[in-house]
Amino acid sequence: MATIAKYNPDMTVDEITQELTTEAENEGTTLDVLAPQIAAEVEKEAAEVQKDREIDEAMSESSSQVSTRSSSGVSRDKILPHGKVLGDIYWTAAGAGWNHIGLYYHVDMAAEAPGKGQVSRVVYTNQVKVANNYGRYSIRVDKPYRVSAANWASRHRGKPYNLVFWNNKTIEASKYNCSQFVWASYKISGYDLDSDGGSGVYPDDIRDSSLLKHY
C-alpha cells in the first residue's frame, strides 16, 4: 500500500484502501492479491514518468532556458501548438503526479481533463500549457472515428477529475482523469489506445500506442 500511496499523494491511505477493496470485490479477488499487482504497475509507470522528466530537464539545459521550474524539474510554460486535424492527440511531461494527455477537438481547440479540482473541458489551445518534452500525434483511424472521439469529448465536458489511474478503464463514468478521458473517446469506437493492457491506462500508455504517430 505504501508504494501506491507514494505515487498518489493526493489520496490518503484510507481512500486508496477503500478503492482497492471495492475493486477487489468486483473482480472476485482479495486486497492482499490485488494490491501488489497494482503497486507493480504503478512503479513501472512512475519509472517512465521519471525518465520523461529527466528528458525535459536536459532539453531545458541544452536550450539555456531560464524559467520557474517545479521541484520535479519540469515547467509547463509553453503554449500548446495547433494540431493538424481534429482527433489528434497531444502529450506532455508534467511537473507533479503523472504526465498529461489530451485530444484536439479542433486544430486550435483542446479537449482534456486538466487535473485535480478541475473539470473536463474544451478550450482553445492557447489556454493549454506544455513542457519542453511534449509531443503531438496523429492517430491511425479513419475520419469518422476521429470525429466521434471529438464529439464524445465535447459531450463529456464538466466532469470532475478522477484521482484513480490504476482502475480507470470505464468509458461512461461520473469523473475522468486525462488518460481515461482520451482512452474512452476512442474506445467507444472499438479502438483501445492502452499500449500495455494494464488495469489502468496512463498518459504514457497512450503516447506509446501503435495507433499513434508523432509529428
Rank of each mutant, 00 (worst) to 15 (best):
M1A: 13
A2C: 10
A2E: 14
T3C: 03
I4T: 13
I4H: 11
A5P: 09
M11D: 03
M11F: 03
E15I: 01
Q18L: 11
E19A: 11
L20F: 11
L20H: 13
A24E: 06
E25Y: 06
N26W: 11
E27C: 10
G28F: 05
A35L: 07
Q37D: 04
I38A: 07
I38Q: 08
I38P: 12
A39C: 05
E41Q: 15
V42H: 13
V42R: 13
V42D: 14
E43W: 00
A47P: 10
V49K: 08
Q50V: 05
D52L: 00
D56C: 14
M59G: 12
S62W: 00
S62Q: 07
S63K: 15
S63F: 10
Q65V: 01
V66M: 12
R69S: 15
R69K: 14
S72P: 09
V74G: 15
S75C: 10
S75I: 07
K78L: 11
K78T: 09
K78P: 08
L80E: 11
L80S: 08
K84H: 13
L86K: 15
G87H: 08
D88V: 06
D88S: 09
I89F: 08
Y90A: 07
Y90W: 14
W91M: 09
T92G: 11
A94K: 13
A94Q: 13
G97E: 03
W98M: 12
I101H: 04
G102E: 05
V107N: 14
V107G: 08
A111R: 06
A111S: 11
A113M: 08
P114W: 00
G117C: 01
G117W: 01
G117Y: 00
V119I: 02
V119W: 01
R121W: 02
T125I: 03
N126G: 07
Q127V: 00
Q127N: 08
V130K: 13
A131L: 02
A131R: 10
Y134V: 04
I139H: 05
R140G: 13
V141E: 10
D142H: 06
Y145G: 05
A150Y: 06
S154D: 03
R155N: 15
K159N: 04
K159I: 01
Y161M: 01
L163I: 00
V164L: 02
N167C: 01
T170N: 07
E172V: 14
E172W: 11
E172I: 14
K175Y: 05
S179L: 04
F181V: 07
V182A: 02
K187Y: 07
I188Y: 03
I188H: 04
S189Y: 04
L193S: 10
L193D: 08
Y202H: 09
Y202S: 07
P203G: 03
D205R: 11
D205N: 15
K213P: 09
